[in-house]
């Protein structure tokens, strides 16, 4: 099993008192498998994704990723996990504005020490980014920026790809195109994919689908 999440809990302190975002979530994902995570706003989808990606720390439960207990790692260990094992596609792209497209695509692979120029070229070509390689992110449309973000995530061939509303900022046509490409490439690399989405239509394209409601899997 690539990913096993057991009884995961997370509480946030708010002005109105503590708020239990996740109240014992269990899920698992195999390598090469795609999973859609749906749920209404505030159901805890993004929080769950951040915890699995090592971006945040749970208050209880376990996350075992590729044989490593993520919850037992310190800050440096989680940073290494993010660098080498997980790839996250953000809704807001989060590209580095001062780097050209070509450098943005290669960036995470270089961080992970797994840069493969030929693979980056392939990703750029399949994403239709070859003519844009010398440009800066601000010179691209939203759909193009998200394709750069996906190529960056896949460049180091991560074991698990996490996508947080990756097409939330795109129009319908661009969203369909980007998702199709992402699924194709994820399948090619054999990675697992966990995608948070509001869209039933997008969720329908995943192999599995889970619905999160009030902090638990419904």
């Amino acid at each position: 099993m690539l990913l096993t999440v057991t009884d995961l809990r997370k509480t946030y302190a708010t002005a109105d008192g503590d708020f239990d975002v996740l109240r014992g979530v269990d899920l698992s994902l195999d390598a090469g498998q795609t999973l859609a995570l749906t749920g209404e706003s505030g159901s805890g989808k993004s929080t769950l994704l951040h915890l699995i990606g090592g971006l945040d720390v749970p208050d209880g439960g376990r996350i075992v990723l590729d044989g490593t207990d993520l919850t037992a790692l310190d800050d440096a260990g989680r940073a290494r996990m993010r660098r080498e094992t997980v790839g996250v596609v953000f809704q807001q792209f989060n590209l580095i504005p001062s780097l050209r497209v070509v450098d943005n695509i290669a960036f995470q692979a270089r961080l992970a020490g797994r840069h493969d120029g030929a693979w980056c070229d392939t990703l750029a070509e399949r994403m239709g980014l070859t003519p844009q390689l010398r440009k800066y992110p601000e010179q691209l449309s939203g759909g193009q920026q998200q394709r750069v973000a996906i190529a960056r995530t896949l460049a180091p061939r991560p074991r698990l790809v996490l996508a947080d509303e990756p097409t939330g900022n795109l129009d319908e046509a661009a969203a369909a195109q980007v998702l199709a490409l992402m699924l194709e490439l994820v399948t090619d690399t054999g990675a697992g994919l966990l995608m948070v989405t509001h869209s039933d239509r997008l969720a329908g394209q995943m192999q599995r689908r889970l619905h999160l409601s009030r902090g638990v899997i419904a």
Partner: peptide, 15 residues
Amino acid sequence: RPVVRTLRALGVPLR
């Protein structure tokens, strides 16, 4: 700040 956040999200330790 966004770049710093991105770098950290991509696995660069804060220190």
